Amino acid sequence: MSETAMPPVVSADEWAAARAELLVAEKEATRTLDRIAAQRRRLPMVRFGEYTFTSAEGPVTLRELFGEHRQLAVYQFMNAGPDAFCGGCTYFTQNVANLDGLARNDIAWATVSDMPIEQMAGYWKEMGWQHIPFASSAGTTFSADCGAGGGFLLNLFLRDGDNVFRTYTTGQRGVDHLLFSSTVSDLAAYGRQQDWEDSPAGWPQAPTYG
């Protein structure tokens, strides 16, 4: 017998009733998220400055990160110092996938960081992130101008010709909600098994980045 606490065992009818009750709350949350998404699509935008980053191939501008796409998502990877890497940013980047799907929606992706390009390139190689475009924002005010404050942040941009505008930004739990592994874990009985979650007594939990 397992020593870990588990959900109570009930009849099929009782489970179906409890699931139906939860479904009502889930559908309302979905409708709320749809309303928020509609409001997000109606946000105004603000013109953003010109920045020149450093890529593994040489200088690259913010405009050039778009490629031929009209929209660009930029994740600001936290700079944790010359011999360290942000665990949260690493976990997030491990979840970045299906960039071809973004491209079909006319969205390019890039990860930037105030880390030196040599440090980024070495980490990208070590982690096997060859599919994720990256550039160093070291020596620029991009991170500060975005409001990252030395942390992590996701920004969305739109271009009109060579003019670049910021349309949206999110951080903290707004970024967290984008993670495939976290989203699927939220559907499982034990959740993410992290100590900040509101879980029943006896559920397995550990520090988020322990």
Rank of each mutant, 00 (worst) to 15 (best):
G58P: 04
Q130Y: 04
P59H: 10
C146H: 05
E68L: 07
Q39Y: 13
G122L: 04
R47D: 05
M6F: 15
P8H: 08
L65Q: 09
I107P: 07
L154D: 04
F134K: 00
V46W: 13
N155I: 06
N98W: 10
Y190D: 07
L158V: 11
R192W: 02
G81N: 05
N79Y: 07
T141N: 11
A135N: 01
R104S: 14
D160G: 08
S136M: 07
A201I: 11
I36N: 11
G49P: 03
T111F: 00
W196D: 02
R31Q: 12
W129H: 02
G202M: 07
E118I: 08
E126N: 02
F85W: 12
M127I: 05
Y209A: 09
D162G: 11
F53K: 00
M115F: 04
A84C: 12
Q172P: 15
D186C: 14
F85L: 09
G149A: 06
S11Q: 05
R63M: 06
A121M: 05
A18S: 11
I107T: 14
D162R: 13
W196I: 08
P116A: 02
G58A: 05
Q130S: 01
E118R: 02
A144H: 15
A18T: 13
M120A: 02
F165C: 08
D106A: 04
S181Y: 13
V9W: 09
T61G: 08
V164T: 02
P7K: 02
R159H: 14
D186P: 08
D114W: 08
P59D: 03
F66G: 02
F48R: 08
P200R: 10
M45I: 12
A206S: 04
A5V: 06
L22R: 12
L156W: 12
T61V: 07
R31F: 07
A80M: 04
Y190C: 10
G149I: 05
D195P: 02
P82E: 08
W15A: 15
C86A: 07
A37W: 09
M1I: 13
S199Q: 14
G210R: 03
V164S: 01
Y91P: 03
A29P: 13
D83L: 02
A108H: 01
D100N: 09
A16M: 10
V74D: 00
F157G: 01
T208L: 09
P7W: 14
V10W: 08
G150H: 07
A97S: 14
A144F: 13
L23P: 03
N98V: 09
P133N: 03
E3Q: 12
L22V: 15
R40N: 15
Q94G: 14
F77Q: 00
V9Y: 14
R104M: 09
A108L: 07
P133D: 06
G122R: 00
P133F: 05
W124P: 00
T4N: 10
T169W: 11
L72N: 00
G58D: 09
M120F: 01
K27S: 04
D83M: 03
G161K: 03
R31N: 10
R63W: 09
Y75E: 04
R41H: 15
E118M: 06
W109F: 01
A189D: 09
L179V: 08
K27R: 08
